[in-house]
Write a protein that binds this DNA or RNA. Structure first.
Lengths: 343, 343
DNA sequence: ATCTTTGATTTAAACGTTTAAACTACCATT
DNA sequence: AATGGTAGTTTAAACGTTTAAATCAAAGAT
């Protein structure tokens, strides 16, 4: 079913049908009714490819994600898609599958670049109106993406890039969380940071330190540890932190997986959470729901980040925005029962 | 950068450039080199929209998912995308967001239909070559999707539909799991099924019963329970099953969330897993990694289901397949330490 | 010397839209 | 009666490809 066929069935020209469809010109009530009737009857759907070709805009945006199987990715995609749908845009998804690659190939960096190039090939080929990159981008990535002459938004985390970006606040969130612990009377802290090279780890740790410094609290060197974000290393670190009589009264784990490890370590050492030691996490991961007492943690505005990214992108597409915009969204404190009031 | 521009830069006709690009006709080495050089220099990328319009195939497939934030969905999408990419296809994703809708709206059925229609509008409008529906489809959905004149593959679960489908084996998997328990000497079973109305619950339960029947084992009515797939109800059901002196020696939970609930219930009742009671789950969910002892469970071939769905779809697109094909993939047993050998 | 064949290239139509420009009635002013 | 304006409609070009058909030149066969 094409415009032409509709037109001939209605006994009018293709232009008229197009005008009816988009109401972009005056059409008499009579012909409008006639045409609309036929459109409904035939179930005609306009060919978006042809439309996009002619209009020189595709109403398509490309979404590149580092790994779709990392759970937070789905929520961001969900947010992106919701706005896209509402605004009449569609998305094509490209999955870099970074997780497997980093694990299995030593030369992942070069593959990485090749994969992005490939993704860009199809996206630019599809004439996307813009691109959202979901993940941790560094200068290299923003350089690659900067080369295409389309609006780009970086969503999730970023180092120092060019381009518009949407992220959540790591530093401030942990800062506030730590303040909360201090207000509750805690003075002896243990910290389990994430991977040293990781940007969020650095940011979160900064927030932690800032709160300590402001309160004039210093930490024992031995109470500063880090893990690989995973349960096991969190538990191991916690065993060290808690395995002495003068252990900290509060342990700040930089994500929930490790926080759960802390709780299990505590139990195995015969310590009660929160009575003997307080614990906080980060992420509001699924696992949180299974452990009791509920670990106090923090929820990232994942869906909202999707919303904002898409909105920002569309501003760029419409040429509305000037220059780069960076949005940092706050996280929400999810209060559990893992923090004891000491005062 | 268009074909025309490349052509004029190379001093040849657009046809020649097109032939070089797709090598679909004889071109002299000399001109080929010349054209390729310019293509490389300019970084030309062909306009897929125009190509698709002309060729009357889009190399696009639509993927409709019931809810992208349900964790298994991401793995299926990953599989779909991997094959798509390898075959030169792209995917556009439509998320029905069913989870929120079912919770918040009583008239979700009609919205559901409208949402699918909307998704189809854009997909058909984009001239997708085919569609993969990821989720539990019923006759209603296959009726809607059957109306479009494109190949469709249903992935995940299905009742009795028309159309090709890919799913994992529920019945046989639980059958084998139960056989394993029987071989290990278990005779007194408790079962925690999923939601009664749910198809996978029914299938899994069938598999369970079949193994029991074959072994001539009968169950006490009171040991047959069900929950809503969630931790809490699993735990509650387990409390009932285990709260008596002659409790079952093995509890088959129809998913991991509930199996974890069983373990916690056991612990609270002072029972040891697996010494006092054996437990099995289903899904190999993330949570499994956090509980010890490791719960014996089963992994669904999610990514593989994505692969197969895409392959099946492309067969349909290429007109290779005749009639509907149904593929049922086996699950893999993940042996933990939650099952005791009684013999 | 003429006719075929072959290989390399170009011409031009087609895909399904949008849209500026042209056209046609019809009516209202002068 | 000529002019102008307006509402409704059509014409035709354009978007960037692909591809059947046409063209052309050079080589081979008679």
């Amino acid at each position: 079913m094409t415009l032409k066929e509709i037109a001939s069935m209605a006994g009018v020209s293709v232009a008229t049908v197009s005008y009816v469809l988009n109401n972009t010109a005056q059409v008499s009530d009579e012909t409008r009714k006639k045409v609309e009737k036929i459109i409904k009857e035939t179930g005609y759907r306009s060919n978006i490819l042809a439309k996009s070709l002619r209009r020189n805009e595709s109403f398509l945006v490309g979404v590149i994600v580092e790994d779709v199987t990392v759970w937070h990715t789905a929520y961001i995609i969900d947010g992106i898609n919701e706005i896209a749908e509402a605004r009449g845009y569609n998305t094509i998804l490209s999955n870099l599958r970074l997780l497997n690659k980093i694990e299995s190939q030593f030369d992942h960096i070069s593959n990485y670049q090749r994969d992005i190039d490939k993704a860009l090939d199809v996206m630019v080929g599809m004439q996307v109106d813009g691109i959202i990159y979901v993940g941790m981008h560094d200068r290299k990535i923003s350089h690659i993406l900067g080369n295409i002459k389309k609006p780009v938004v970086y969503c999730y985390c970023y180092t120092d890039g060019e381009g518009s970006s949407v992220r959540y606040s790591n530093e401030k969130t942990v800062y506030q969380m730590t303040q909360m612990l201090i207000e509750n009377g805690h003075r002896e802290f243990g910290v389990i940071n994430g991977l040293k090279e990781s940007e969020p780890a650095a940011l979160r740790y900064n927030g932690f330190l800032k709160a300590l410094n402001e309160a004039g609290i210093t930490m024992k060197e031995e109470n500063i540890t880090c893990g690989n974000w995973k349960y096991r290393e969190g538990k191991e670190a916690a065993k060290k932190l808690l395995g002495k009589s003068d252990h900290p009264t509060a342990i700040v784990a930089m994500n929930d997986d490790m926080a759960v490890g802390v709780c299990d370590a505590a139990r195995e050492l015969g310590l009660k959470v929160p009575d003997d030691v307080s614990v906080t996490g980060f992420d509001n991961a699924d696992i949180i729901q299974y452990v009791s007492p509920r670990i106090t943690t923090v929820e990232r505005p994942l869906q909202e980040m999707g919303y904002r990214s898409m909105e920002l992108l569309l501003e760029g597409v419409r040429g509305a925005s000037v220059g780069d915009v960076s949005i940092t969204l706050p996280c929400a404190l999810i209060e559990g029962e893992s923090v004891k009031k000491l005062n």
